[in-house]
Amino acid sequence: MIADYQNAVRNAVDLLQQAAIPLPTSNADWADMNIAEQGELAGGVRYFKHGYGCAVHLPAGPVSFDFGEQGEIDGFNLSRLAGFAGDRLAQYGFDDEQALKLSFDNEVAAGSLLYSGYILYYLASASRTNQKSDFAT
């Protein structure tokens, strides 16, 4: 589920860039960025800028994400994952949101998920991604 979520975020960020919306160097940079709060991207895809992030209504389904402290795009939290999965939780092996929460909490306790100190978690086994060149591959 996390990999699917991160791929959806990368697709959303790619569409933002194609629309000449610059990537932020930090979450505060994004919050202060003077761009339209909502609009349409390539292919009629709608976006909504919120706080430290953005919700993008991709053809495969909506994804909402926050930029990390240094503009990272691969952070997540429980509510973002649950919202992304929506009614597809069972496809990811979870009976309900409580089962997802239990699994998430267990992974945090095991050290597989690292808390950023504010809002986001990151996979312990992965390097963080934030700039164009990082997710172009």
Rank of each mutant, 00 (worst) to 15 (best):
W30P: 02
A20H: 15
L15S: 04
W30K: 08
D29F: 04
V13N: 06
W30T: 04
T25R: 07
D14T: 14
I2L: 11
L23D: 02
N27M: 03
N27Y: 05
Y5Q: 10
A3K: 13
I21S: 00
N7Q: 12
D4E: 15
P22F: 00
L15R: 06
S26M: 00
V9A: 10
A20P: 07
Q6L: 15
A31E: 11
I21K: 03
D29H: 10
N7V: 06
L16I: 01
P24K: 07
L23V: 10
I21E: 00
Q18E: 14
N7G: 04
P24G: 13
S26C: 02
A12L: 11
L16P: 01
A31Y: 05
D29C: 06
V13I: 15
P24A: 13
Q17F: 00
Q6N: 14
V9C: 13
I21F: 02
D14Q: 10
Q17E: 01
Q6I: 15
Q6S: 15
P24E: 09
R10E: 06
L16F: 05
L23M: 13
I21L: 04
A3S: 13
W30G: 06
W30I: 00
V9D: 11
V13K: 12
Q18C: 02
S26E: 05
A19I: 02
L16G: 07
Q17K: 08
S26K: 02
N27H: 04
D29M: 00
Q17S: 07
Q6K: 15
A8P: 07
L16C: 09
